[in-house]
């Protein structure tokens, strides 16, 4: 194990910080994993209601948001490569694109939820309680909680990426000290990973 670069800070350990990020990601996976188990059991118990309620969702918006997230995952992955190649300008540009894509995702989500609210569908709404079956109420409850929690992760991810962007611009995150950007990337891919499973389970019910 030879050292390639000399750091002024002796406490910097890239592998350890990556391991720490992965441990955090595992807790996130199990958080969403628990919700996925709740979803699958309720869907197993109420298949018709889930199908009926699922037809209320717009698969086109779901598909557009899927592609937006996949592209943003690619741009932040490219940003890590650009940083390692010491191309600061490109790193900053790619991170800015990632943040813009995240914003577009949230705007789509805003309009998507807005349509649901216009139809009188939100957790605990009169329309939901009076006119819908137990299964449909469960579906929309899970829909708002799971996509809402996911959207919260998008917002947190954006903040982390903005911090990483500032640090790259300032020069405190660079090719020899990339952990903040790498971990921001890992977090962002986690958000993508969760959406990869949310999309078919909510938007592709036929």
């Amino acid at each position: 194990m030879e050292h390639v670069t000399q750091h002024s800070d002796p406490h910097y350990d890239q592998e350890a910080s990556k391991l720490g990020m992965w441990l955090f990601i595992f807790t996130e996976l199990l958080l969403f994993g628990g919700l996925f188990i709740v979803y699958s059991i309720y869907r197993f118990l109420n298949p018709e209601a889930f199908q009926l309620a699922g037809s209320e969702l717009n698969p086109v918006i779901g598909t557009i948001n899927t592609i937006i997230l996949l592209v943003s995952s690619m741009t932040i992955a490219m940003a890590t490569s650009a940083l390692q190649k010491k191309n600061k300008g490109l790193t900053v540009l790619l991170l800015e694109i990632t943040i813009m894509l995240a914003l577009v995702f949230l705007i789509n989500k805003y309009f998507e939820w807005g349509v649901k609210f216009d139809h009188g569908i939100w957790p605990g709404s009169q329309h939901l309680i009076n006119d819908m079956s137990k299964g449909e109420i469960l579906f929309f409850g899970l829909y708002f909680v799971m996509t809402g929690l996911h959207a919260l992760h998008i917002i947190i991810g954006m903040i982390i990426i903005i911090v990483a962007l500032k640090r790259v611009q300032k020069g405190t995150v660079h090719a020899d000290r990339p952990s903040l950007l790498e971990n921001a990337g890992l977090y962002w891919h986690l958000v993508d990973l969760i959406w990869i499973f949310l999309f078919p389970l909510f938007y592709l019910i036929h």
């Binding site: 390639v4 598909t63 995952s73």
Partner: peptide
């Protein structure tokens, strides 16, 4: 000991694969 630098085009291929798989699903 250096980090493996993934070429940009690998990421582009993966993105295209991911989008194709989305339409596949």
């Amino acid at each position: 000991e250096k980090h493996h630098i993934v070429p940009y085009k690998v990421y582009v291929y993966i993105l295209l694969a991911l989008i194709s798989l989305t339409f596949g699903s």
